[in-house]
Design a protein around this nucleic acid. Sequence first.
DNA 1: AGTCCCATTATTGCATGCAATCCTTCCTCT
DNA 2: AGAGGAAGGATTGCATGCAATAATGGGACT
Lengths: 244, 244
Amino acid sequence: MTTSLEIATQVLRDGLMRGQFDANGKLREQSLAQELGISRTVVRLALGEVEREGLVVREPNKGFRVRSFTIEEVRDAILVRGQLEGMAARLCAENGLPDATISKCRALLLQLETLLSGGLDRTEERIAWIDLNATFHDVLIEASGNRFLAPTISSLSKIPLVSSRAIVFDARDHELTLERLTAAQTDHRNIFDAICQRQGGRAEYLMQEHARKSAQNKRLGFDAMRRDQQSPALPGLALVSNSA
Amino acid sequence: MTTSLEIATQVLRDGLMRGQFDANGKLREQSLAQELGISRTVVRLALGEVEREGLVVREPNKGFRVRSFTIEEVRDAILVRGQLEGMAARLCAENGLPDATISKCRALLLQLETLLSGGLDRTEERIAWIDLNATFHDVLIEASGNRFLAPTISSLSKIPLVSSRAIVFDARDHELTLERLTAAQTDHRNIFDAICQRQGGRAEYLMQEHARKSAQNKRLGFDAMRRDQQSPALPGLALVSNSA
DNA sequence: AGTCCCATTATTGCATGCAATCCTTCCTCT
DNA sequence: AGAGGAAGGATTGCATGCAATAATGGGACT
């Protein structure tokens, strides 16, 4: 993260993920350059980056526009992620996990459980839960042994709400959130169990189901949001912690 | 394809896919700019594009290097593609295909069969077979209804030998090639049958198996190539038709 | 001879400037 | 009044130039 380009790209990405630009709005290179204190050349390079990630679209000779995602698109992307994470889980089961990975998973599951039973009242605890959860997923993807699962899933995760880090904490109904996270935790346990018992099909299916629930939760969160405050499409609902 | 950037990107991409740059070699912006008759600025933008596609890697302050892929990486990518195409086939089965799509698939399968039974002696016939085959795959991906399958698979297909268009015609053993393509055609038939009968799991499994065979064929082709002419890694083996 | 260091060259990173294209606004004509 | 079009301004596309960093080569010292 030392070059201007990398910084500019990250700033743009963050802003887009958080919905700080109006949906479908034009992105003028000049003004972005001024805001960021850099030249148009670098802005242009950075826009190319986020274009490839799908956050903006380029119209030749007309510049870049913010891309917005419908809840259906978010759902589609989450299901694709689930399919790939399911593959990862299946491969873990088929190939078997090394002892170090098994220990690592056990530790992660334990920490997740401890945090959850604590009630997750403080923001730091929620962030910690998100981090641990994402790490659990990443460990399995890594342990699958397939070198293209991680980059492909990571590419999908650049879309708002698709990452396994994008967890909706419903401020109005904390009980409901806890219920969902408890279900997620059960999923984790079962997935890990299936992997340890070398049940590839079961591991794959459970992981897909895990993703389906996530997609469903996001739809419900989205619906609730629309009911309450007439929010538009959604470039980034991003309720909690979206970086990485 | 009207702007310099688009042209430059395509030229770079083609060159990389065909292995016209030495594996792991440095790509100097100046010389590329001269060769293409454009400015370094555009070259830099184009290199950014192909970097995101995974064909080159960037080392900060040190420029870009050609990325080469081992046969194992190619295999991994093909299996990921298979997992995603399997998902597409499953969704087709679950949701059912519209009549127009069914007719389209039938026509494609028939044309593929006709070409194959003709022996595929002429190059044009082989290219036609490749096109029809790719179209069949694309139709199912499109018909799946999931808006993120196509872009994700397309992104993987930018890697040499991973695309469903990258078919190895073994010049030494034409019979073997025909045998493999016949097996592929049987797969197509069975996949389509499974979809029509709404057998999602079967369709998914058959499609994955179809990809596994493809990966296996590429490994065999690669091994044969190494035996014969001591070729290095493989940035682009690309024996026949790799564009798109 | 081998190694370390410094100077020179080559290359990248970034900013600026100019031409081409698009968008806006206002005027004209029906 | 509305539609069409032209002129001006705004914005993008591309090229060039300069500063910063890395690669290279030669010389001195061990």
